[in-house]
Design a protein around this nucleic acid. Structure first.
Lengths: 329, 329
DNA sequence: GCTGCTGCCTGGAACGTTCCAGGGCAAGGA
DNA sequence: TCCTTGCCCTGGAACGTTCCAGGCAGCAGC
């Protein structure tokens, strides 16, 4: 039962009493077939449960209509981005091919896997590869880096205005009356430098002196930073990302420091983590919908060789005020 | 520069001065070519940077050597499973095709995406589809359900002995001297019924009366359950999974209940969440390595029509004692 | 010498599509 | 009347592989 041969174009053509070329046309929704015939063909296809063979299709047409996506399977924010990409891809006629970076499968391997599949373009989420190797890759196919700036003219970039985002966080806290505002940074993580810069600039703008603690992008790095904070706590802190922020939150609550009563906190990403009712984190939202849609349209534009003006697309972030910020005690 | 045609078998054949059939043999490492010729062919292929076109290869051979994997992109435990699957797949000669279930892309859609790619088998992580629809699917191709039991003879199942796992948690707590041990369950989530059953059986075994609170598989459901717990806290609690447990932990620490001093807690999954230093959750570990390897071998065995004795593979779990359990105060 | 084998190699037919060049046929203009 | 112009439609050649049926040496055995 299992190895019945799948129906092919020829089967459908026979059943509908037309040529396979015509069936091909109809299946692709191209003009050149009469209404009645079209109906008959679709009916036959439906009855046989015909599904076009993507391999044959690609082989002949030289196109795969496949966009490769490389993401970190452990990153909640990447999960949000992938979700957005799927949604954005829905109406484009392109499919997504996912390839995950895991603990023992690095980015190079993830990319190599996609290359075999003959993707037409690559969308990399917060890629860690060197600019040089991304550049080399972009010689083979269009490459879009999502959520990480890349200094090379061959690589498109879609990212949020991270400096501006940090600025929003600081403005919000300063507006509440905070003056001792620390920043737990993301080290070498994608976007970290930019956010640090935005923090510094905003502090300067408000005439405040900043204080930067080394952090990272994971919960445990946040927890470590929080412990360092305990000795001499500020009244407010902006954190590199939500994941790191939850680590900070956890250590604070274990040490009896009430948030936001004793300490206000702003995260970054508005990942699904921050939205959880019991975390309820004030955070800087990256506009995932716009970012993913932009990344997708850009990739497709490159594939179709459309003229492009600006290589970098910068999406403005916005502040989402929830329960972890309040005026200082 | 970007659209240089990729070299094909014919190009290599010409360069090496042999037929393309022979090149094909050599590339596949099959017998039937002399040592010297083989060397010459490989050299030519190397010089041209030849990479076989997988699509054409698959089209002709009728095989894709592709295993479809459907996973929930928001589930940390699925992330661990996918990681394991990639590792397990490494030496098998099969590739993984990922398809994610997201907030607006349901399981049916994720599966449909894979069907187009002509996968030879499907591995579904904790599938939510009805047994009937999985059964229908299994008529088309081998289907392995990972981490969720399915009552249908056509579908293979790889899962951990969930009842036994709950038992381990209870035994551990009882062994520490706890008698008031509650269970926060997973509702209709995959595995929940089994874990509930194991909890009840173990409590009976120890002559204790159980108490089950409705929970779920997410942090917020855990947080809600924890709030329900506050009115009349037990001395220990076993939780459906790690993700739910972190929700519980969070509410507890906000309400000044010390873990494990005032309340011990055991999670389930040993997801990367539990391993975080600041969470440090005692938990029941599903043996991800064995489970993923089993799922993969099973899928491949089905594809190759090997005889199979037991449809269900049940992997024993084990307890990982970390910092959230201690004797009652 | 012939036969039969084995080891290396070749040619051509698939696989299921898409693409291109055209073929009928009806309607419309000269 | 005949030629054009569209509209539908068909046939067959690709695409880059693998697979199958051989071919042609060289060598052993009779």
């Amino acid at each position: 039962m299992r190895d019945e041969r799948r129906p092919t174009l020829t089967d459908v053509a026979e059943r509908a009493g037309v040529s396979k070329s015509l069936v091909s046309l109809v299946m692709r929704d191209e003009p050149g077939a009469g209404a009645e015939t079209r109906r008959r063909v679709l009916e036959a296809a439906g009855q046989l449960g015909y599904q076009p063979d993507s391999r044959a299709r690609l082989l002949r047409s030289g196109r795969s209509r496949l966009l490769g996506v490389v993401f970190g399977i452990q990153h909640p924010f990447h999960a949000d981005l992938v979700t957005g990409l799927y949604t954005a891809a829905r109406e484009t006629g392109y499919e997504l091919a996912l390839s995950a970076v895991t603990a023992d499968r690095d980015e190079a391997e993830a990319i190599a896997g996609l290359l075999q599949d003959r993707c037409e373009a690559l969308i990399l989420l917060g890629p860690h590869s060197s600019a040089a190797s991304l550049a080399r890759l972009s010689g083979r196919m269009p490459v879009v880096s999502l959520a990480r700036p890349v200094r090379h003219t061959g690589v498109d970039v879609v990212r949020s205005a991270d400096a501006e985002g940090s600025g929003l966080a600081v403005d919000h806290l300063a507006g509440l009356g905070h003056t001792a505002i620390a920043h737990i940074d993301g080290g070498r993580a994608p976007g970290a430098a930019e956010r640090r810069r935005g923090y510094r600039a905003a502090m300067d703008r408000h005439g405040l002196t900043g204080r930067i603690l080394p952090g990272g992008l994971t919960e445990s790095e946040g927890a470590a930073a929080a412990r360092a904070l305990l000795a001499d706590p500020p009244t407010a802190v902006t954190v590199f990302n939500d994941r790191c922020a939850t680590g900070v939150l956890d250590v604070l609550s274990r040490n009896g420091i009430a948030v936001p009563d004793e300490l206000s906190m702003v995260g970054y990403d508005d990942s699904s983590l921050a939205r959880l009712a019991h975390i309820n984190l004030t955070t800087v939202a990256q506009d995932v919908t716009t970012m993913t849609r932009s990344a997708l349209t850009r990739a497709i534009a490159r594939v179709q060789n459309e003229p492009i003006t600006r290589r970098e697309i910068i999406v403005p972030p916005h502040l989402v005020v929830r329960g972890t910020t309040a005026p200082p005690a």
